[in-house]
Each structure stands twice: as C-alpha cells, then as structure tokens.
C-alpha cells in the first residue's frame, strides 16, 4: 500500500478519505447496530465482550477508556465495576454511534461515573498516563493508521495499565474458515439488506475483517508500539481474538 492510499474493505482509497467513508458506514448502521450484532453473531458477541471484561481485571475506582465504544456494551459493565469513585470514558469517532450509546446507557440508569468523547483513536485527546485500562472492541480494523492508534493508546495508558483489543481475526480451523467465508460474503450482506436496508455497509464489514491483520501480526504491531507481555486468546476457533498488552 502506497503512502497516500489505504484499504477500505477490498478497495483502495485515499488515506484522507477512509475516516469519512467509515463514518458513513456507521452513520448508516448506528440505529440498528445492536440488533444486527445479535443477528450476525447469534448473540455470541456478548460472550466475547464478557470475556474481555473478565480479562480487563477492572476494579473499583479505576479509570477505563472504551475506544470505539459504540452502543456502550463494555462501558455499561465497566461502569458497574468501577463504581461511583471510578470513571469510564466512552470514546467513538462517530457521533451517531455516541448518540445511540449515550441514550442507551442513560436509559439503563448509567450516569455519574461515565463521560462521552468524540475522538479519533489516532489522536486521543487525553493527557499521558491517564487510564488504568483501555479497550477497543471491533474498532481497530476501521482505524486508518493502526500503528499510530496503538502508539496513542500506549501514551494515555498508565504504567502498569493494560490494553485489550477485541477484533475479528483469522480462523484457525480450515473448515470453520470456509463456512465463515460463505457466511460473511453471502449471508451477511443479505441480512444487512433485510434488517437495516443497507447491504453495502455489511459488505464493507466483511471485507474489512479480511483485511485486518491476523493474530500474530497484530501482536507484533502492539509490541512495536511499546506494549510488553503481549498475548492473544482465540475465541470461537479464531473468528475473534482478544489481544492483551501491558505498559510497563
């Protein structure tokens, strides 16, 4: 990939255009994002997120940053764990997603220990060494410059803090991979058309998953950004992987 172009699914686009095109996708799907997630994953995305919460080892009074927090699944759980003396910051580059997330969390009675921030993961608007834990769930693949984003996360993480990246990855079972390919490229856009009346956005989701670095590559990228003791846990035959790295 040349310096001024990047991937947008299987297409090549100008680097400066990617954020806008990703934003269009999420503006389009925001209203039915939760419903589509449940339909697409058969509800398993809740289990993947639950495991991420467990691996965060979050404790009361901690400060947590939930990047690409979207509709607030992780932020809701973190807000319960850190309690009234802690803080959760739900950050997302897309204002439509933040609006949906804020409404949803407010309806669930989450207030007082949560803040919302429209921010680009590459340029996080927080002081150095601020957060005990940072999570980014199903968001990193949409970031234009992933290395820059990882460095930015490293900067705002406190020493001793941890980054958790939950993202689609490469299946480690060839049979599962074949079924998964058929599902992603045939069924997924069809479901997107039926439920959200938007097959193109879901086609992009499937393509962006394929273009995302595999488990080992992402682990290497985290190490390059400065994270130590990096490891990953495959879930559902590697369809999804949870990467963990510490700032020491």
């Amino acid at each position: 990939m040349s310096d001024d172009t990047t991937h947008f699914g299987f297409q090549k686009v100008k680097t400066s255009e990617k954020a806008g095109r990703v934003a269009d996708v999420f503006h389009s799907v925001a209203a039915k994002y939760d419903l589509m997630n449940d339909l697409m994953s058969g509800g398993i995305h809740r289990i993947w997120k639950r495991y991420t919460i467990e691996m965060s080892a979050a404790r009361p009074k901690q400060k947590i940053l939930d990047i690409a927090g979207g509709t607030g699944d992780l932020s809701y759980q973190f807000s319960r764990i850190v309690g009234p003396d802690g803080l959760v910051v739900l950050a997302d580059i897309n204002d439509s997603m933040i609006k949906v997330g804020r409404d949803r969390l407010t309806d669930r009675g989450v207030a007082g220990n949560i803040e919302y921030c429209q921010a680009d993961a590459q340029y996080l608007p927080f002081p150095d060494n601020t957060f005990d834990c940072i999570t980014i769930a199903f968001g990193l693949r949409n970031v234009t410059d992933k290395d820059m984003a990882l460095e930015s996360m490293y900067r705002v993480l406190k020493p001793g803090g941890r980054l958790l990246v939950l993202e689609f990855s490469k299946p480690n079972n060839p049979v599962v991979e074949k079924i998964y390919d058929q599902y992603s490229f045939r069924l997924l856009p069809m479901m997107g058309k039926l439920v959200a009346n938007d097959s193109e956005s879901y086609k992009y989701l499937a393509e962006s998953i394929r273009m995302h670095p595999d488990q080992e590559t992402l682990k290497g990228m985290m190490e390059n950004a400065g994270f130590k003791e990096c490891e990953y846990h495959n879930m559902t035959s590697g369809i999804v992987a949870l990467h963990k790295g510490l700032k020491i």
Partner: peptide, 12 residues
C-alpha cells in the same frame, strides 16, 4: 474448553 464455551456456561 475454549473461552467461548466456558464463558457461555458460566454466564448461563
């Protein structure tokens, strides 16, 4: 078991 199975069982 993998994390998905164990976490699902415990969540249930």
């Amino acid at each position: 078991f993998g994390p998905t199975v164990t976490t699902t069982a415990l969540a249930s």
